[in-house]
Nucleic acid binder design. Structure first.
Lengths: 308, 308
DNA sequence: CTGCGCGATTGTTCCAGCCTATGGAATTGG
DNA sequence: CCAATTCCATAGGCTGGAACAATCGCGCAG
């Protein structure tokens, strides 16, 4: 057996297609077919069932593929580790960020990171938490910035900051009169939410008394981005919760939209940098976390990392 | 890079000697030296520092070796997984057992296991918990039977049974009069303990009010095995705690030694079968656990596995 | 100083893995 | 129902790299 063989197996599993997998591996299709066949013979188990046109992993194959992924990831760690030891702070950092943070946080972070980590260019991937976490676990991302607590045993996290929520509403809304808004003041029926899968959606729904399903909330008005949500709010369709950084960036407070801080200790979310346990890039990531904390605007509660 | 290269690295790390490592890998020394050199050049990092006669890992090497071990273990999992899928219940099971359980439990287990798992010969390794756990994590053992709670994130455990403690004392001891002995009745100063590292030592010391250090206990009388401990007790040097299975086996209750059950709910220890999370042998291990529970004599509390 | 232990170097052999070309099975479309 | 297409498997030749044996060179010990 060979690491290359395992790469081939993973490629076939990912593409469900020998030709495309071969393309991705930069080898010819017969080469890849041959190696897979050799490996299957060596293991005495069929990894993929080629029935008709479809290529699917067998039951045994599923397990084998999972172990193969771990082996390949560990081998990649060896390489990353070597590079990190030549210069711990050099080398591309692939960073996932959730959509409700990325556009508002990265403008602060990118210049600071370029200065503090000049040899570690950031490659950003914007997606929802549920998509980012497996990518981090698989080692396809070095880290991710998310706003939920993730407890997969293979992850570690660095706290970045607590981001309070604000309420955004049209200028003629009755709550404009108060300096602060209590969650209970918000009529769930008028609360506008993001589409499913955004953690901000769940957090807003829970805060305003609509745990999980967001039942009672205007289900027919779900925006796919925070920007859309704000446009809907400005157009008078309801009120919405906005995380502080989105308020800070200034595009929110216009003459068509008013924001008020949300009262209460729980009215904020903890933003974290998660990465794999034992990631070879840990040192660079600790430095990145430090840089992020330092580049934050006033108004979000900065946290100390235990290693500082 | 290559899985073989990683094997070579691990062998050199384990032997601290190129020649012996080559021998262990069944290749010539030049081959191994060459591959290590090639890998170091490829990674751009020196893995081993050859200063004078000594071969030691560099700082970077330590990390690389650790990742290499994970990669090789995962690759081995692929092989094990394939075998397990051909016949889940076949293939050698390498089982660690702590010394205060092994000689008393295995006589029950071995015949039963030979019958229920005829194609899975048990290879026993007897050692203290602290030595067994890393072997299990590294994949050098498939599982281990221990009597403490281990919380390494990479381990799973199957509960086997609760083993009550008994008190062993010479026939002329005043406590012989009572049917049961309360932990508080035992004078810590007369309590004989095993040497450091045996979990039974810690458990006995804690039960009888000498947390951890066992302070106040006769420090100059520490036996390296339970058998020795019993001989000391019979010779009138004090009293000692004996786990139930050691009592059951009959060698304890002689005319020179009397045993009484220890009262109280906490006067027992939970015996578990631990194994790596995602071990390819999980199915065989579940069957082994079931077999062990079924082969136990009366008197130890049998537990149900959640999967039964 | 000399012998020995041990890792590095050198040169040759040979096999594993790669490619191109082709075969064959299954699905699709007319 | 047949032809075209798609896709994986097989065949055969070529090449790079891993293996070995032999040797070198260095550092330590007596």
């Amino acid at each position: 057996m060979n690491l290359r063989d395992l790469h081939y197996v993973i490629a076939v599993a990912d593409h469900a297609h020998f030709g495309n997998a071969a393309l991705a591996c930069c080898v010819s299709q017969p080469t890849l077919s041959g190696q897979i066949a050799k490996l299957e013979q060596e293991l005495g188990v069929e990894i993929f069932s080629r029935v008709g046109r479809a290529v699917r992993p067998t039951e045994a194959g599923e397990q084998i593929i999972a172990h193969a992924r771990r082996a390949v990831a560990a081998a990649q760690d060896v390489v990353d580790c070597a590079r990190a030891n030549r210069d711990p702070l050099s080398g591309r950092l692939r960073l996932g960020v959730i959509p409700t943070i990325s556009p508002y946080l990265m403008p602060y972070v990118l210049p600071a990171a370029a200065e503090k980590l000049p040899n570690a260019p950031l490659v950003l991937v914007e997606d929802k938490t549920a998509h980012l976490v497996p990518l981090v676990i698989e080692g396809k991302l070095d880290a991710a910035i998310i706003a939920t607590q993730e407890d997969a045993g293979e992850l570690a996290s660095l706290d970045l900051f607590d981001e309070p929520f604000w309420v955004a509403m049209p200028p003629n809304h009755p709550l404009v009169a108060s300096r602060q808004v209590k969650p209970a003041d918000i009529d769930p029926k008028t609360l506008l939410l993001l589409t499913d899968g955004h953690c901000l959606r769940d957090q807003a729904a829970e805060l305003c008394g609509n745990p999980q399903t967001g039942q009672g909330v205007m289900a027919d008005m779900r925006a796919s981005s925070l920007e859309t949500l704000l446009h809907l709010t400005a157009a008078g369709h309801g009120v919405t919760l906005v995380p502080q950084l989105a308020v800070e960036c200034g595009r929110v407070e216009t003459d068509r939209l008013v924001t008020r801080p949300l009262a209460g200790g729980a009215a904020s979310r903890r933003v974290r940098l998660i990465h794999r346990l034992r990631s070879p890039r840990t040192r660079a990531l600790v430095e990145l976390a430090r840089t992020i904390r330092a580049s934050l605007p006033e108004g979000v509660r900065k946290l100390q990392s235990s290693s500082d």
